[in-house]
Design a binder for these strands. Structure first.
Lengths: 212, 212
DNA sequence: ACAATAGTGTCTCTCAGACATTATCAA
DNA sequence: TTGATAATGTCTGAGAGACACTATTGT
């Protein structure tokens, strides 16, 4: 909107909700997808905070991640607003759910962060379980559209490593040959190979640039 | 969330934003997609309102549509939260953008509603142009997944009419034979035909039910 | 007869899935 | 030499796009 209809109303006429942000920070290893939880009064939950005056949602998310789990430099993305008036017994609180992604190493080393496999979640408060579910589904949709849109891997990578990222995101094994063919559109082979490994040395690939 | 971190804070410690809802109500004719605008102080804009205490976003959207454009019985869907602290010079106002859909007839007859083709929008205030853009993109994505997910058409319809709906949503002409084959998964032919028309009388189709 | 619309058939292309084969390393 | 991994080739089936053809009506 923002129209009050007649103009006779002012913003002060309406009771205002508290607005919080809660973020599912996902990481991927070769074996599974993890979500970063943090401990509050002994229980695990998603990191979150209240939105402050003059602050954007994006900034509130990044501030909460810095404060709660010591993670920075991220690209939060909105997922959904949870708006049940009864969802928080302390009062009227809307929560804007977000998704973000970090490398697994950052998550493991961050103080206050406890990465947990998304397939093995503890009981979470509020709508946090739904948020994780939406975040995973969103990430899966993203990874159906490209090689490594969230850049879990570096500039050069083997197709095997890329496949393991996709398997972690998808939560199921993928056929090797089909996967390679599907990635053909998104990656280009380089002349480099990874040396000193068992088996034929794998070629390193890079992301395909605009119209290559 | 909603975690305050230490527990020493209460909800009252934080300034709270006003929260509004703004809705892009879309309609489709054989020729184009329309969005329902309403006039406020002489200018066109999307219908919207402020969220009230104890109200869900969904209810606020439906209330605003009833009040502003006389439309009811809809299924609003969240699109995005617009959160620029400076977006409304009356104060700190978040807007939760929504999408909804009505038949073109309802929109034309509704008092206060002015349907405008989405390809020919006037200048809109706030983020309303972005909201329309997101709504159209969302509707297009929906119509790529089924025959008539938003039920612009009735229980029985010709494939020609269905194609026209899809063309209005997509904003471009579609190939007839390809379209028919694609719809094969979603619709079933009935024995009825539409009589009294020029050319071979078209068969009426219906939506395919669970596992037909 | 003719124009107009509905509906079907065929061919090609692309892509996914499944299977087989070749290539190149370490141990 | 053997085991492990990388990379390629081939076949089949599904679906999209393009084109041609038949069917059935009103005028």
């Amino acid at each position: 909107m923002t129209s009050t209809g007649t103009g006779s109303h002012s913003l002060a006429d309406y009771e205002r909700p508290s607005v919080a942000v809660d973020t599912a920070v996902l990481t991927a290893t070769a074996k599974a997808l993890f979500v970063v939880l943090t401990r509050f009064h002994g229980d695990l939950r998603l990191p979150g905070t209240f939105l402050r005056a003059g602050e954007t949602l994006d900034r509130a998310v990044r501030r909460s991640l810095t404060e709660k789990v010591g993670l920075t430099g991220l690209r939060p993305q909105q997922l959904h607003v949870f708006d049940d008036p009864e969802r928080d017994d302390r009062g009227w609180v809307l929560s804007v759910a977000h998704l973000d992604v970090v490398s697994h190493e950052s998550a493991v080393h961050a103080t206050g962060a406890e990465p947990v496999p998304v397939t093995d979640l503890p009981t979470l408060p509020f709508d946090h379980a739904q948020i994780v579910e939406r975040a995973v589904e969103h990430l899966r949709a993203e990874y159906r559209t490209g090689a490594d849109p969230r850049r879990f891997l570096g500039a050069r990578f083997t197709l095997r490593d890329l496949q393991r990222v996709h398997e972690a995101v998808a939560g199921e094994p993928l056929r090797r040959e089909t996967f390679r063919k599907r990635m053909d559109r998104f990656v280009l082979p380089t002349e480099q190979r990874l040396e000193g490994v068992v088996g034929k040395p794998p070629r390193l690939y890079r992301h395909r640039r605009e119209g290559e």
